[in-house]
């Protein structure tokens, strides 16, 4: 019989300054894992302490669309210029060179365009904060509003069950 996993993955991995981060749900806590090549670093927040989760919309989607769109535009313009230049010089040595350059510039342009489409479809970006008795903390994950709503849906039941159970009272 397969051993039941202790942790369930909540948010997909994201590259940040501290390495690649991922969010996991444990039996009574939320675990943020940041890992570099071989070292994993952990931060835990106990579900009992969750007061609220806040997602503030940011301009991440717009900024990435500008970056990808700009790259697609510039590479695409270069590819188009090479292509039309090749068409005006058929049969010459320049024709083959221009076709090759058109392909070299066209492929990244297409890739950037596809990335821009994916970025748009992923939805608006957000920054997530967790409020506990020790204060407001910024979570590096998730980065999209849709993923935040899914996170809340998955955590809600666990948090409600944990916070309904009374803690052992102090003497």
């Amino acid at each position: 019989m397969a051993k039941k996993r202790e942790y369930q993955k909540l948010a997909s991995s994201r590259l940040g300054l501290a390495g690649i981060g991922s969010l996991w749900l444990g039996p009574d806590h939320l675990l943020l894992v940041s890992h570099t090549t071989a070292v994993e670093r952990y931060r835990r927040w106990y579900l009992r302490d969750f007061q609220c989760l806040i997602a503030r919309r940011n301009s991440a989607r717009l900024i990435w669309n500008i970056v990808f769109g700009g790259a697609a535009f510039f590479c695409g313009s270069g590819a188009a210029a090479c292509w039309f230049g090749a068409l005006q010089n058929p049969g010459s040595v320049d024709y083959n060179v221009l076709i090759v350059f058109a392909i070299i510039l066209g492929l990244p342009s297409l890739g950037a365009f596809i990335l821009m489409l994916i970025n748009s479809l992923l939805g608006p970006g957000c920054t997530v904060y967790l409020q506990t008795p020790s204060g407001l903390e910024k979570l590096s994950l998730p980065g999209r509003l849709g993923a935040f709503r899914k996170l809340v849906d998955r955590l809600d039941r666990s948090i409600q069950e944990t916070q309904r159970q009374p803690a052992t009272p102090a003497p």
Partner: peptide, 14 residues
Amino acid sequence: RSVLHVALFPAFSA
């Protein structure tokens, strides 16, 4: 004017 999505849990008002 930030747009905030907030999920409150029982510990907020306890």
